[in-house]
Computed example of a mutant assay.
Amino acid sequence: IWRQASNELTYTNSFKMKLSVIFGVMHMMFGVCLSLLNHTYFHRPLNIICEFIPQVLFLMCMFGYLVIMIFMKWFIFDAESSSQAPSLLITIINMFLLKPPGLLLYPGQ
């Protein structure tokens, strides 16, 4: 249906940007997991506790949540209600600034 829409370019660019975020988070997580292999190979348990675990927590709590919100937005909101869907960028910015979200993606957010 997006092929027939007048905003096909807007949709395609938005789709590419969200896919780039997903692949970027996967790539960063892969790099962090490689650092775990290095820490275990060189027998550095303190680096695992003080470096690897905080990196994974931060990455998954912030950007893993963003990826989950992207998938939710793709599968929950259809083409008609996509104008009522919350902006993911504004949601993440408000999360960093500790502000309550404007529009909610799901109840209890």
Rank of each mutant, 00 (worst) to 15 (best):
I22W: 04
P54Q: 13
E80N: 13
S82P: 00
R3S: 09
Y106W: 15
C50M: 13
Q4W: 09
K99N: 08
N38H: 10
D78E: 12
L36K: 06
K99F: 10
L103S: 05
L34M: 12
L57T: 06
P107L: 10
L103Y: 01
I1V: 09
K99H: 15
W2N: 10
L37E: 05
N38Y: 12
T40R: 10
H27E: 13
F75K: 05
V25A: 06
E51M: 09
L103G: 02
N94T: 11
Q55D: 00
L103V: 11
W74M: 08
Y106V: 15
V67N: 05
G102M: 03
W74G: 04
D78Y: 05
S14V: 14
I22L: 08
K99E: 02
G31M: 14
T91R: 03
N47V: 08
Y41Q: 09
Y11Q: 06
H43A: 06
M28I: 12
M60Q: 05
L89R: 11
H39Q: 12
A5L: 12
S14I: 14
M69N: 14
N38R: 10
N94A: 05
V25N: 03
V25M: 07
S82L: 13
V25W: 04
L88S: 03
A79E: 15
S87A: 13
G108E: 09
L19A: 14
M29D: 03
P107C: 08
K99D: 01
C33T: 13
Y11L: 06
V21S: 02
S6L: 11
F96K: 01
N94M: 03
L19E: 09
G102F: 04
S14K: 15
L103W: 01
Q109G: 15
E80I: 13
G64A: 04
F71Q: 06
W2S: 09
S20I: 07
C50L: 14
I22Q: 03
M95F: 15
K18L: 02
L103F: 04
H43R: 10
Y106G: 01
L9K: 13
H39N: 14
L59Q: 04
M69L: 15
H43M: 07
L57I: 07
P45S: 05
Y65E: 00
T10G: 09
L46K: 14
